[in-house]
């Protein structure tokens, strides 16, 4: 059964004009958000994007932008409290 999280929140943006068709985005995405036909990539399922940032990191053309980070409630709450960017390092120094 496919897991589904909140819809219409992902910050993923893709500009087809810049795409060089290397297919890296489709290769690295762990949720099948991208599809590439070898010439251009397209976004198949934006709502499955977990904003891990792998696609943007590996796009040689800079065609993808996403505000990447950790989807962890504790980290985000800790980030609010300390005023820092949320990280995987929990307060106790332990992590996933």
């Amino acid at each position: 059964m496919k897991h589904k999280y909140l819809k219409n929140v992902a910050t993923l943006s893709y500009s087809e004009g810049k795409c060089v068709g290397c297919g890296r985005c489709a290769e690295v995405c762990p949720h099948g958000v991208f599809y590439s036909n070898g010439k251009k990539a397209c976004v198949l399922d934006k709502d499955s994007c977990m904003e891990c940032g792998a696609c943007a990191m590996n796009c040689p053309a800079g065609a993808i932008e996403v505000s990447a980070g950790t989807g962890c409630a504790i980290a985000i709450i800790a980030g609010w409290l300390t005023g820092k960017e949320p990280t995987c390092d929990c307060s106790s120094g332990e992590c996933c």
């Binding site: 897991h3 999280y5 909140l6 929140v9 992902a10 910050t11 762990p30 949720h31 499955s48 994007c49 977990m50 904003e51 505000s67 990447a68 980070g69 950790t70 989807g71 962890c72 409630a73 504790i74 980290a75 985000i76 709450i77 949320p86 995987c88 996933c96």
Partner: peptide, 24 residues
């Protein structure tokens, strides 16, 4: 249960942020 977002493999930070703002 909300803490389990950190262990899950599919929650986006934008989604979790939205969820916390409503739920907390």
């Amino acid at each position: 249960a909300m803490n389990f977002t950190g262990a899950s493999t599919y929650t986006s930070p934008s989604g979790v942020d939205k969820e916390i703002r409503k739920a907390l």
